[in-house]
Amino acid sequence: MKLDRTTIAIGVVTVALLAASPVLPKWAMSLLNVSLCYGTVVLGMMLLMRTGLVSFGHGLYYCLGAYAAGTVDQMLKLPDMALMVAAGAVVTGIVAAILGLLLARYRDIFFAMLSLAFSMILYGLLVKSSALGSTDGFNISAKTLFGVALVDDARRYAGFGITVVLTTLSAFALNLYLRSHRGRLAEAIRDNELRVEYMGASVRATIHLHYVISAVLAGIGGALMAINIGHIDPEMTYWPQSGEFVFIAILSGTGNVFAPLGGALVFETIRSFAYEYSPNTWQMVLGITMLIVMIFLPGGLWSLIQRRKPA
């Protein structure tokens, strides 16, 4: 198999991030951490968007992944990072496989809205569950990684490490998939489903598969976020959270698997500095940034990089 440039770059970034972690300022590390978790979720959004679908309810899987991780920690008393992420991936995969049976029939705004309805139903269920802390949620703390006990700083580095590795692995796998025969169907489906059907490919099966992949990525992102933040609550499936994922995906563009990761980092950085320097009007700063990107960079931030590509 020939290595493409994206694959090589993913490898370089992984190594660079891991190598840089000891010298990174702590705030930068947590900023990167959060961005990578968001980035993983948006990777999935990107796959859906390439297929022509936008979910306004992806918070559903982000939140489910986090609560699955929380359940492993709190109810099963197995506070292992790897187990928590695995639980997040498995639970979201199963739920998405079931809901996907239904959702794969939907397109456009109806797909978006039905996803939103499901995410809000989960929100309602979690708010009703006093045992899970209702809107306050609960704290979780991952204490081991593959059974190795972690204390103090080791925990932070392990959290960062597992986030970097899983995010870049996801990006690597997705990149591979997008270059595969089936992966290339995504854009064909977006452009014209009928032609894809005439070619003999199943649109519905492909959409179902992409829905499950994107859900699992969101579940992994949610579980990683739960590990890094140490707290989960139903806000993760509330509609503004889902809206934020769509926002980052549009901001990023769908040109390359690096786009969601970079987009998430840019978004988190803007938000964090807006909170700090403009505490009363940070929403306005975000809104204006968003408008500027959509007006001047219709292809997202990635088009900035792509444009310079020699013809």
Binding site: A112, V246, F247, I250, N280, M284, G287, M290, M294
Partner: peptide, 23 residues
């Protein structure tokens, strides 16, 4: 433009107007 982009344009507007109201 795409329907989704238009939704996000109004979302951006929503964020801006929220702060305008506050100000």
């Amino acid at each position: 433009k795409d329907e989704v982009v238009l939704v996000l344009v109004t979302y951006a507007l929503f964020l801006i107007l929220e702060d305008v109201i506050k100000l």
